[in-house]
Design a protein around this nucleic acid. Structure first.
Lengths: 142, 142
DNA sequence: CCAATATCAAGAACTATTCTAAATTGGTTT
DNA sequence: AAACCAATTTAGAATAGTTCTTGATATTGG
């Protein structure tokens, strides 16, 4: 289910630098936490988890690190409604299915070869650079 | 471009009650503002506009009214990233195209007859009750 | 008309996030 | 290794949007 082609595993050595971003101790740990449990944690979730490795890290630093990772395309920031932002290390294009009964968020991918204009009435001349798709519902028990 | 089959026009008399929600003076005016300019205003935008008709209305009341309208399915609340919520009177299923260069938000509809599973790899047994789709980009000048 | 209920208004409170300023760190040059 | 400089981290203050609280006001049903 997890795409190991686009995202390193948590055991992988995280290099000194990724996409031009120097990996400080804090950034490395924040990133490692994201790779570890792919459950779309909030900044505060990350803060709590990263404290094991770096007890003196501050929440502001977690925000800083997440912002740096996002801006360098290493991590994706995901917003559901007006809830706290969530973060995931899967930067491949994908949407989310939010299971209302369990709260679990599943990544969903587009079928290969589909085109936005295949199923959407887009304004004439629209050039789409960014897609945000969230589905909500339940995982029916078949 | 505006769907007059699912949304009343601003000139239409707004009835005493919609979908079980009593239309107070404040709710009526808030709703009228939303019908007037379909530009996805924020709560504060609505507040500023509605003051013409009701100079003593408070921002809290605008929030209350919008919440009541949303909860009764009369109005839709739309969130882009972590910006202020926006509100639109088009409750038919639709997504949004956010033009980055002008800031204008265009409603986009699904082509008739398309199915989510036609273009998405959904988790097995997923029952989708709610779709949120936002595209960002530019309206190329062709 | 009166009581019960719903709604409104004003401002305080709350939450997630960003900002600020000072301290620390890391890498580089001497 | 010491000095230097820029980048980063930290802690707490500030901010923005929204929600909550409380008392006032309006509306409905009896």
């Amino acid at each position: 289910m997890v795409d190991n082609l686009t995202v390193p595993s948590p055991e992988t050595e995280i290099p000194e630098e990724i996409s031009g971003l120097r990996m400080t101790r804090q950034r490395r740990e924040v990133y490692r936490i994201l790779l570890q449990d792919r459950d779309h944690p909030t900044a505060n979730d990350v803060f709590l988890r990263v404290k094991d490795a770096l007890p003196s890290i501050s929440l502001a630093t977690v925000y800083n690190c997440l912002e740096a990772l996002v801006q360098h395309g290493i991590v994706r920031q995901v917003n559901f409604e007006r809830e706290s932002s969530r973060f995931c290390p899967n930067v491949a294009e994908h949407g989310h299915f939010h299971d209302r009964s369990t709260g679990v968020i599943h990544d969903i991918t587009f079928k290969p070869g589909v085109n936005l204009s295949d199923f959407l009435e887009l304004p004439a001349g629209a050039v789409v650079t960014d897609i945000e798709l969230t589905l909500r519902g339940q995982l029916g028990s078949i």
